[in-house]
Simulated scan of single mutants.
Amino acid sequence: MMKAITHTQFGEPENVLFVGEHPVPQPAANEVRIKTILAPIHNHDIWTVRGRYGYQPSFPAIGGSEAVGIIDAIGEDVHHLQIGQRVSVASVHGTWAEYFIAPARMVIAIPDNIPDELAAQLIAMPLSSLMLLEFLNLQSGEWLIQNAASGAVGKTVAMLAQKRGIHNISLVRRDDAITELKALGIQHIVSTTQHDWKEQVKAIVGQHSITAAVDSIGGTASTDLVQLLGENSTLVSFGTMKGEPMQIPSGDLIFKQIVLKGFWGSKVSQNMSIENKKRLVSELLHDAADQTLQLPVEGIFNFQEIKQAIAASLKSAKAGKVLLVA
């Protein structure tokens, strides 16, 4: 038997999650079993527990969708991986457990020079961030603006965009977040708590036009982004932190010829060729190894501390991801 963070109903994670015992899973053909080292708590993991995400598990369910660990069993027809290999994987289920199963084709071998804390969160959000940049088709020298930029995705998008020569403006909702992002080498950070923040954005851009915006908040925050976008630009909805519909001024949408799109990493990933995925993963591994990509950690909690871990993950001001240690 193994220990795993479990829920038998949907609800607020602090109320429905508990440490339960489950049979150790066995890999089928083309699968591997991974002994978990560290697993992150993502926002989509929390929404899944609430029953309000695109994927809904059957009960009893084990939480988690990404982890770094050691392969300890291999199913039939797996030839490119071996027992004892340290790997990362995302877009799977049940990683908040001592062991979990993953399709062999989705597992990525991790070089020794990438630490566990980085490897545990290397795939889901960073790969989504790279796919988002490709989805926007942004070229070197163009301008991107994003809100909620002090979150994991916002920081990652900014770092990866800069590496590609894309100018990024990061909108944050607290002044002290400016220092946090600057410590990661991120440029062009503006706090929306300051009354003249839109003028600051315009001063940064100068005579240039903002080509694309990423909205992770919704509500009136969508209005702000639309007002700052240039002509023939793109607004992408990445999330809805406020839980409110996007408020889009029809005048700006019409006269600027703005294109509005929704982005869901899982769907984009499904439609992406294997060659493109390999190219993006290779870019991630390179950026992680040379420390271009930095993924801070808020804290590491054991399974018995799941309530404290959830509380830490839900904090509005945190340094980085919350990780669970098996």
Rank of each mutant, 00 (worst) to 15 (best):
H286P: 08
G251P: 03
H286V: 00
I274T: 12
I254K: 06
V259K: 12
Q247R: 08
K242Y: 03
E244G: 12
Q294M: 10
W264Q: 08
D287C: 03
I306H: 09
L260A: 09
G251L: 02
P296M: 03
G265T: 12
G265D: 09
I254C: 05
E298Q: 15
Q304D: 15
K261W: 05
Q257V: 03
D290P: 12
D287H: 09
F255Y: 11
K307E: 15
Q291E: 13
K278V: 00
E298F: 02
I300V: 06
P245H: 05
Q304G: 15
V259W: 05
G262F: 00
Q291I: 01
L260S: 12
E275S: 13
D290M: 00
M246W: 08
E283Q: 14
L284S: 04
Q247F: 04
S269M: 13
E298R: 05
G243T: 04
P245S: 05
Q247P: 12
L280K: 00
E244K: 13
Q257G: 06
L284F: 03
L260W: 09
Q247M: 12
I300T: 06
A288E: 04
M241D: 10
F301H: 13
Q308D: 13
D290R: 05
P245I: 01
H286E: 12
A289R: 03
E305R: 03
G239S: 06
K242H: 11
E244A: 15
P249I: 01
S273P: 09
E298T: 06
G243Y: 01
I300G: 01
G251V: 07
W264L: 06
V259C: 08
Q291K: 06
K307L: 02
D287R: 02
N276W: 04
G243I: 02
K277E: 06
Q304P: 14
L284K: 01
A289F: 01
P249Q: 00
K307V: 14
I258S: 09
F303E: 11
G239W: 00
F301G: 04
F255I: 10
Q257T: 10
M241C: 10
G262Y: 02
S269Q: 08
K278L: 00
P296S: 04
I300Q: 06
F303K: 03
P245Q: 07
K267A: 03
K307P: 14
P249M: 03
K256N: 13
G251F: 08
Q257L: 01
L260I: 14
K278P: 00
Q270A: 08
S250L: 14
P296T: 01
K277Y: 08
T240R: 00
N271T: 05
F263A: 11
W264C: 03
K256C: 00
Q270T: 05
Q257P: 12
I258Q: 09
E244F: 05
A309Y: 13
S273Y: 04
S266N: 08
L253S: 14
E283P: 03
N302Y: 07
E244I: 11
A311W: 10
F301K: 09
D252S: 07
A309T: 11
N276A: 13
E244S: 14
D252Q: 11
Q247T: 15
D290V: 03
S282L: 02
A289T: 12
Q270C: 04
P249T: 02
K278A: 01
L260E: 10
P249D: 01
D290E: 11
A311E: 15
I274D: 13
A289G: 15
Q294A: 15
K278R: 06
